[in-house]
Design a protein around this nucleic acid. Structure first.
Length: 483
RNA sequence: GGGAGCGUAGCUCAGCUGGUAGAGCAAGUGACUCUUAAUCACUGGGUCCAGGGUUCGAAUCCCUGCGCUCCUACCA
């Protein structure tokens, strides 16, 4: 057990409190939230509050405390005149971080601070650990992630961000329910990982003595539901991808996948154009959100720009880009790279398609600040998607780009079982056992033409709260174990 | 995966070209009945991330490991 002077002192003060009749760990305490207390403040009215002591300003016979209960901060006053002898003496045993309940009356100080003058108080929980510094709070990022409870109790912005996250998730559900979508749950433990290209986490099912994986996407199960006649469904839950951790990736992350039968890619565009303003209005309070270090304004007012992939390329590289021969394109790309001081990775690129995509990735997508649907994407980049009717070299999908990053793809889903099998076989290569035969079988029962969409909830929260790191919007991000 | 930076008191951080460790907050004692990052006086508090090396001497220089951050690459 870790021991230090603070712990020793607090254990001692706990003992003293016990002797004075103050049980250090109390019980249910009727009270009002400090936020409510502030809103309903009325001079002289009795009130009961409860929370953690953030600051104590001792002045002898009149003492001021700042209490925080997670909803607000509020000042308590402990005056000798107003308290019993025991209650006043016991007050001296309180430490920062202790949780108490206090009963008293509303009072405004000479400086105009709304306060509660305490008449009686009780211990609810003694803190044995010293809380972080009152002014800076807990600033060490690693400690904030590993000991989120300390971060939350001291950093108001952090706590507020997680309340915002929670409300965003509720409003996503509300919006979709209002549009007639039904929320469903599909298996997280699966025999094989499908619906995306990612390495899964492996587990073992003891009773059946078989290995299983944790899902990398719910897609293939949701489509089975469309076959079954659940026409408008969504699932909001976790995916698990056995890959690295960085500023935008946590191995377990929250996704929202949405499918609409008898729809297509454009139905999904309509959903994003409805959902994002809804979230802005209900939760954020503005449709113009600041993002990134440059505080660029992202305007979520619809409609959003729709532009074909090739048109975007032509905008930057010239109308004749697709008529040039490869050597000329290469020269032009290099020149553009120098011009914009961008490091293009051109080694090993031998085909026009690859070169164009490198240009798109490095020079175009990153510059798309405002919400944009990039449509009609080359088939090769999205091999499982359904082709455009008028051009089989393109697929009928969009990539929804915000602030230079892809927020989500949307699809006109492939419902031709023969084409789907061909594409899956192509992707699996020799590893044919990875094909989900039951899924193909479901498609063979007939799946209506469908629009589908899946977005990362964590990343959406990042965009809407102007947060740079996924770890700041996930309560308990994955961390390496310390020795 | 590659590169850079960081790790010092409970917390936030200083610590130069190597000479046995510093501040503020917090804590203890005392003063103070309108403070609000209260103020004032005194006092205590350290595995300088871990392990090795160089040196008479290492928080400081070198190597290895661990963790975090940033950049970059990969990955939807």
């Amino acid at each position: 057990m870790e021991t230090n002077e603070y712990r020793e002192q607090r254990l001692a003060s706990m003992q003293t409190l016990k002797e004075m009749g103050y049980e250090p760990y109390g019980c249910k305490y009727d009270h009002v939230d400090l936020k409510v207390a502030r809103e309903t403040f009325e001079e002289g009215r009795p009130v009961r509050v409860a929370g953690r002591l953030l600051m104590i300003r001792r002045m002898g016979k009149m003492n001021f405390c700042t209490m925080n209960d997670g909803t607000d901060r509020f000042q308590l006053i402990f005056k000798r005149d107003e308290l019993s002898e025991t209650a006043f003496a016991a007050f001296k045993q309180l430490n920062l971080g202790d949780i108490i309940g206090a009963e008293g009356v509303f009072f405004t100080t000479q400086k105009g601070e709304k306060s509660v003058v305490v008449k009686e108080w009780t211990m609810l929980a003694k803190a044995l650990e010293q809380p972080p510094e009152k002014f800076h709070g807990l600033a060490d990022q690693e400690e904030c992630y590993r000991r989120r409870y300390v971060d939350l109790m001291t950093n108001d912005e952090s706590r507020a961000r997680f309340f915002t996250r929670s409300r965003l998730i509720m409003e996503i559900r509300k919006y979709l329910w209002d549009k007639g979508f039904v929320e469903v749950e599909t298996p997280i433990l699966q025999d094989q990982a499908g619906g995306a290209a990612a390495k899964p986490f492996f587990s073992h099912f003891n009773a059946l003595d078989k290995d299983c994986v944790m899902r990398i996407a719910p897609e293939l199960y949701l489509k089975r539901l469309l076959v079954g006649g659940m026409n408008k469904v969504f699932e909001l839950g976790k995916d698990f991808r056995n890959e690295g951790i960085d500023r935008t990736h946590n191995p377990e992350f929250t996704v929202c996948e949405i499918y609409e039968a008898y729809g297509d890619r454009t139905s999904m565009e309509a959903i994003m154009e409805g959902l994002l303003p809804h979230l802005c209005d209900k939760v954020i309070g503005t449709r113009k959100v600041e993002y990134g270090e440059k505080k660029e304004i992202i305007d979520f007012n619809p409609p959003y720009r729709r532009v074909a992939y090739k048109d975007l390329v032509k905008e930057l590289m010239g109308d004749d880009w697709f008529e040039l021969d490869f050597a000329a394109q290469l020269e032009k790309a290099k020149a553009k790279g120098r011009e914009t001081d961008t490091n293009l990775e051109l080694d090993g690129i031998t085909r026009e398609l690859e070169l164009t995509h490198e240009v798109y990735d490095k020079l175009i997508e990153k510059k798309l600040m405002q919400p944009t649907f990039v449509t009609r994407i080359p088939h090769e980049f999205v091999p499982l998607a359904k082709a455009c009717k008028d051009d089989p070299s393109l697929v009928d999908v969009f990539e929804f780009v915000v602030a230079g990053r892809e927020l989500c793809p949307g699809y006109t889903e492939q419902n031709d079982p023969l084409e789907q099998r061909k594409a899956l076989e192509n992707q699996a290569g020799e590893d044919t056992e990875k094909i989900d035969e039951d899924f193909i079988s479901a498609l063979e029962c007939g799946m209506p033409p469908t629009g589908g969409l899946g977005f990362g909830v964590d990343r959406l929260v990042m965009f809407l709260t102007g947060t740079d790191s996924i770890r700041d919007v996930v309560l308990f991000p994955q961390m390496k174990t310390t020795a």
